[in-house]
Simulated assay, not measured.
Amino acid sequence: MTSHSPHLVVFTGAGISAESGIQTFRASDGLWADHAIEDVATPQAWRRDPERVLRFYDERRTQVRRARPNAAHQALASLEKQGFRVSVVTQNIDDLHERAGSRDVLHLHGEILKARSSVDERMRYPLPRGGIKLGDICDKGSQLRPDVVWFGEPVPRYVEACEIVEQADLLLVVGTSLAVMPAAALLERAPLDAEVILVDPAAERLAPPGVARLPQPAGRGVTELVRHWSREGRLWLPETLLGA
């Protein structure tokens, strides 16, 4: 397929990573059940108790390193290997899409396996092992912090994400409650003639009007769609599987 092939844009949320064992934030047994947002995930928390914030994200980092890509991550990467044009926009801060083999991945909320400067968000440093400690500094002499977007901070790559979604011929939304703004508003940026599919166990309840619904876990639903597209050699809306 050429660069003029139909463009599949995939927008993923915590549900796709949950199947790899990464604890979500908003579930009843999620991270916020044990940690108050204002204590670990805001600029104010960072100023008040940076050591606590660093410890929280070190624990998350360990969890991500132990996790492995699941069937949904692998299915999306396999489409790209077959020559389909696939772009991934993710709310997730893990690297499971990349480890599965996806090459065009935009992280809206940052990457937990990177550190960044506290004074210059453009200065990022990979964390192949270990974590961040007080006293670890950037090249400008400022304390390193997790490369994640905290509550109350702007989403620096949102405009770029909008531009990608605006190019979609088909928008596949996987494992997101569509509750986190501004990310949830990305669906409104899809072209009027683009099909939109939501894969989520709660899809019947979550899907906005006009969005096709596949109420299945990510691993099952995405794999099923990819199998159809691979067999046909094209992107299409399998109406026998979906309700709108």
Rank of each mutant, 00 (worst) to 15 (best):
E224V: 03
R145K: 15
A67W: 03
A36S: 13
V159P: 00
I197A: 09
A179F: 01
A185S: 15
A75M: 13
R205T: 06
Q91E: 14
A115L: 05
A18K: 13
A161E: 03
A203T: 04
A218L: 12
G130N: 06
E121D: 15
R189S: 01
I37D: 05
A100L: 00
A207D: 06
R213E: 01
P191T: 00
F11R: 08
G110W: 06
A179N: 09
A67V: 03
P154L: 08
S28M: 12
L76Q: 10
R68Q: 15
S117A: 10
Q74L: 15
E59I: 06
D49K: 04
D94L: 01
L96N: 06
C138V: 03
P6F: 06
T176S: 15
L237A: 04
I164T: 00
L76P: 08
H73S: 11
W32N: 01
P146I: 12
L54I: 04
P6A: 10
A212F: 14
N92Y: 11
G219A: 15
L206E: 05
R234V: 08
D49W: 04
E51V: 03
P50C: 10
R124Y: 02
C162F: 00
R122C: 04
A75F: 12
G21C: 04
P126G: 04
E19V: 09
E195T: 10
N92V: 08
W32M: 03
T90E: 15
L76E: 10
V53G: 01
Y125P: 00
A75K: 11
C138F: 02
A168I: 01
D29R: 06
V165L: 02
L225C: 08
I93D: 05
S3N: 07
P146M: 11
A207P: 04
A190I: 03
A185E: 09
E166P: 03
E153N: 07
I112T: 03
R103L: 02
D29N: 10
T176Y: 14
L108S: 13
V222Q: 04
S28T: 13
Q143D: 09
S20G: 07
S17G: 11
F25L: 07
G221H: 13
V196F: 02
E160G: 02
L206S: 05
F84L: 02
I197L: 14
C162P: 00
F25V: 05
G13I: 01
M123K: 15
P69R: 07
S230Q: 11
V199A: 11
H7N: 12
W236M: 11
G219C: 13
P128H: 09
G13Y: 06
A33G: 10
E111I: 07
T90H: 14
S28D: 14
G141F: 01
T176C: 13
A33Q: 12
F84E: 00
P128T: 11
V159N: 09
H107N: 08
A184R: 13
N70A: 11
I37A: 08
W150Q: 06
G135P: 07
G233F: 08
F151G: 02
S3D: 12
S118G: 11
G21N: 04
G141S: 05
V40D: 08
R129Q: 15
P156T: 04
R231Q: 12
T42W: 10
